[in-house]
Design a protein around this nucleic acid. Structure first.
Lengths: 356, 356
DNA sequence: AAAATTTTCGTGTGCGCACACGATAAAAGT
DNA sequence: ACTTTTATCGTGTGCGCACACGAAAATTTT
């Protein structure tokens, strides 16, 4: 690997001048700049990122705003894990990552945490835009202060975000539909169990349902889709009642689709209702879901490499701050099909050369 | 992040002494060593990998021995891609990666390429142990010279390799069986199309078939498995003849399993034989397979993140050489289920903070 | 007790780059 | 022709660490 010093010798200038050309800084005549650029290209010069990182002394702070993961909703543990991993790796780069949490069911906590976030004066922000209106406010502030920000996991358009890191929710629904169609055939009824639209993260959920239904429409399958809207997945008694009611009324229902990470709740209820091995498609590998999948109470889980999602969100933003590398506007996670058989191999940790 | 110099001040010694303690080098009395270790722990000191890499001047050469990818077998392009990526990133670490190829159908080329490989005196080797007997020879040489080596993609035991990077072939077969069982139901006949056992890479193929059959046995499904053994997937006329013959004889065959990356050949033949949308499970996302999947001629592809496989093989070996970090003996790739719907999101490139 | 040896430790340099500072040369102003 | 301004470039230092070299102290040998 050729160094700046060597390039300088070849061009008969000082290393400082080469440095200026590399970074397009002013203070070098067009004539010599051109010559140096030629030599750089000719020798395929690439900055040694390692030396660069060591020399760079600018400090950056990235702030993250994401839902906290209570016992009821374990999903957010995974992106957080990826975020923490990126955080560790970024320390020697002079990048600090600070995390702020909010309650998914309380938009005020979203606003409040954001205020705390602003107080640390971050140079970049990652956020999960759970609440639409409030997000408009927040992003206005960020744009005003010229703080770049990316959306994580939930995609909404027209807010001037640098990037979106997450899954194509609609397509993941389509895939769920395909699996249902392939395994259930044409004439069987299916049931979609979802929560109330006004709850958080609904953007993804509704897109999944749309995608699911879309598959049946486009492929002209003659299945009947039933829907069960629950107010609160946490209320076991009421959920049990609603489920058994709709299943009794529609005994021809054979396949069940739960487009959120609380699939295990439905799976375990069905088990209790005398259906130990239901055909059920759920979302996300949480601990509970993994257990239900292993026990055969869930057939398929659609997953999205949530750990990698968190990691990449930080990584791309850091790259933008450090090297001014603009990420693509959509960084789409894989849409993984997880069964009992391939679960042990899913969502592996990744580590980089710099991690321990 | 606390530095060596700061630790030295706290311990009232010189940075050099701290350095000696960190690397367990001799030349420091147990008393002061203990004191320094205490302070290191207390402040949770971690070496700055970036500064370390810059200071390290030891050069390493990693040699890779893998099958070349002709038009007939595109699979190996993917691991190579990952290897090249790792190679680029490793340059600033003083690690050079050299690749050597052999013909999968010619064990002599395996031996010959290995000789060339030895000539560059690598400090570490990655190899795809396609031929069993010959691999024994090669690994003997490597052990003799104390050159650490890892196996890529094909797993064979008892050769003293540092690590294996690849898929659990048996389990991937089990998963294929599961998908077949789920979609085909209990009474349908299925056909497994494979190549002759003496061909290269047979270890993986036979394990996949074993896994596939195992699923049906364990779950007591009453399907009948038919087998078609082809001498050469490349001979279109003969393959067509064999396929149409077995399908005519067994019209009840509804599902087809092709446990190798040439699934697209069978898929296209079936298309020609008047079965435009067969139920077919194949392996690996090659260009041809991806096309056939998109066209609906293949239902499922089982994939294994081959790009990541190549990358990780190099990465783990480099980490071992650079930092003496022993990888786990099995680095298992995910067993991915790929359909038309999630294909666009599969096997994404990954890049690190140090890549361009 | 002096010399020789070994143990224990400090100092200094360089890895490749970024960037501040100052020097020189060219252009503009007076 | 001289000063002032501006454009152009070179020099030097530090980022955190590894490692070679040598100095000092402790130990052994004579």
């Amino acid at each position: 690997m050729i160094t700046i010093k060597e390039i300088a010798k070849l061009a008969e200038v000082s290393p400082g001048t080469v440095d200026r050309v590399i970074h397009n800084r002013q203070g070098v005549s067009e004539k010599t700049a051109k010559r140096i650029r030629g030599i750089l290209e000719q020798h395929n010069f690439k900055v040694n990122r390692i030396a660069q990182s060591l020399a760079l002394k600018k400090k950056y702070t990235i702030a993250v705003l994401l839902p906290d993961s209570d016992d009821e909703n374990l999903f957010w543990k995974s992106p957080l894990e990826g975020i923490c991993k990126a955080k560790d790796e970024l320390i020697p780069f002079g990048v600090t990552v600070e995390t702020f949490f909010f309650d998914q069911k309380d938009s005020r906590s979203y606003i409040n945490s954001f205020k705390l976030l602003l107080a640390i004066k971050p140079q970049g922000v990652i956020l999960v835009p759970t609440f639409k209106k409030e997000t408009e406010e927040l992003t206005n502030t960020l744009r005003q202060r010229e703080i770049p920000f990316s959306f994580l996991n939930i995609s909404i358009n027209g807010y001037g975000n640098l990037s979106f890191i997450g899954q194509d929710a609609f397509k993941s629904g389509v895939l769920a539909g395909k699996l249902m169609g392939l395994c259930m055939g044409h004439k069987v009824d299916v049931l979609t169990v979802h929560s109330r639209p006004n709850l958080s993260n609904f953007n993804n959920i509704s897109e999944r349902i749309k995608g699911f239904d879309h598959y049946f429409e486009v492929n002209d399958l003659k299945n009947t889709n039933h829907y069960l809207e629950l107010e609160d997945f946490g209320n076991a008694e009421r959920v049990r009642g609603s489920i058994s009611e709709i299943l009794l009324k529609n005994p021809e229902i054979k396949g069940i689709f739960v487009p959120n990470s609380r699939s295990h709740i439905i799976a375990n209820l069905l088990h209790g209702l005398g259906n130990p091995k239901p055909f059920l498609i759920g979302f996300d590998i949480t601990e509970h879901n993994a257990k239900a999948l292993t026990d055969g109470k869930i057939t398929f889980l659609i997953s999205q490499k949530p750990v990698a999602q968190g990691y990449r969100a930080i990584e791309t933003l850091a790259k933008f701050l450090l090297y001014n590398r603009k990420p693509s506007s959509q960084i789409l996670s894989p849409i993984e099909i997880i069964t009992k058989e391939n679960l042990p191999y899913a969502d592996q940790k990744r580590d980089s050369l710099l991690s321990f």
